[in-house]
């Protein structure tokens, strides 16, 4: 009798190996955040088929991975604050550095940050910052140097802010000399009271892409992401980027492997492939975001290498703070956010 289950198991094994004959990898990411041709090249070289699934924001990705207990996808690309959250909740698995031959290409400035000490769970893919965007044709960029400048009365009903609690609070926290990751209720309250004064100046909280209102000429001043500026400049070179002196907000989107991933080996191969110098170069050229890959940077043309929007000076990066999960304090932030938006 014992033989039958054994036989069954053998048949099943055979069946599963047959299924796995076609090697694959399931990537969960923003649409076109990895160039199509890069994916195709990866498949050509390794024979691993990439199933590329998309989400519209970090939050949807997190909820889905959380509810599925980390199953269903082999690679996800969370932003820094989510890396810290997912790591703490056991949704990610450790990445084996021994399998990543190209890890040495990454800039040490962007490794070992508090959101993932030692980069045990994440490998930086692209990064950027949130600073101030200005249309040089309408406003002299030299007159804007700090977040505090946005509070000026003359911008009444003119500003664009991103529709993101943490980013908006970042401005006010920095302006008051606090950490962007503070969980101290008094500091958050001070920032809130400061933001109340800013509300009169707000024309729009942008929920999708801040470059659009800039390009359309509906706003000339406000928050914007560095990558968006690069994209906007292709259409209108007057859109310029300013690193506010209190500190821009920095973020990194990293590769990570969910704890329930089925193709862990392939995921490592993929991450290693993406770390190759020429792949990183192509990504920057197509997407306009900054790469943490020094070897890729060296391959780019002079102009791109020296573009401070893409590659800000080292002292700015070193002094910068990356967004982390704030845990339960999120409720405090959101409570104030609701009040701001209902005019309280």
């Amino acid at each position: 009798m014992k033989k039958i289950p054994a036989l069954l198991a053998a048949v099943l094994m055979a069946a599963t190996t047959a299924l796995h004959a076609e090697e694959k990898l399931v990537v969960y990411n923003w649409a076109e955040y990895i160039p199509e041709s890069t994916l195709a090249d990866f498949t050509k070289e390794t024979g691993i088929k990439v199933e590329y699934s998309t989400y519209e924001n970090n939050e949807v990705m997190y909820s889905k991975i959380k509810l599925q207990k980390g199953k269903g996808y082999d690679i996800v690309v969370p932003s820094s604050y989510l890396v810290s959250k997912m790591r703490q909740e056991g949704l990610l698995q450790k990445i084996d550095p021994a399998k990543l031959t190209n890890l040495k290409n990454l800039s040490p400035d962007l490794l070992d940050k508090p959101y993932d000490p030692g980069n045990e769970y994440s490998v930086p893919y692209l990064w950027g910052s949130t600073g101030i965007g200005v249309n040089a044709k309408e406003i002299d960029p030299a007159t804007i140097t700090s977040w505090a400048d946005l509070w000026d009365e003359k911008w009444q009903g003119k500003l664009l802010l991103t529709d993101d609690v943490r980013e908006v609070f970042h401005m006010a926290l920095k302006k008051n000399g606090f950490s962007t990751n503070t969980t101290n209720p008094d500091e958050i309250k001070t920032a809130y009271e400061d933001l109340q004064k800013l509300m009169l100046n707000v024309l729009v909280f942008n929920a999708d892409a801040p470059r659009e209102p800039f390009l359309a000429g509906d706003v000339n001043l406000g928050m914007i992401w560095s990558g968006e500026v690069i994209m906007a400049q292709q259409e209108n070179p007057d859109i310029q980027y300013i690193f506010p002196k209190e500190g821009a907000g920095f973020w990194v989107d990293s590769f990570a492997i969910p704890v329930g991933a089925e193709h862990v080996e392939n995921a490592h191969k993929f991450i290693d492939y993406m770390l190759r110098p020429e792949v990183g170069q192509k990504v920057v050229e197509e997407l306009g975001y900054s790469t943490p890959n020094m070897a890729s940077k060296a391959l780019l043309d002079e102009d791109t290498q020296n573009n401070p929007v893409i590659f800000p000076p080292a002292d700015i990066v070193k002094a910068s703070e990356f967004q982390q999960d704030v845990g339960d304090a999120m409720k405090v932030y959101d409570g104030y956010w609701e009040k701001l938006k209902t005019g309280k």
């Binding site: 923003w30 649409a31 076109e32 955040y33 998309t54 892409a209 994209m231 997407l287």
Partner: peptide
Amino acid sequence: VFSMVKVG
């Protein structure tokens, strides 16, 4: 389409 917003 909604996901494309990230890169335009």
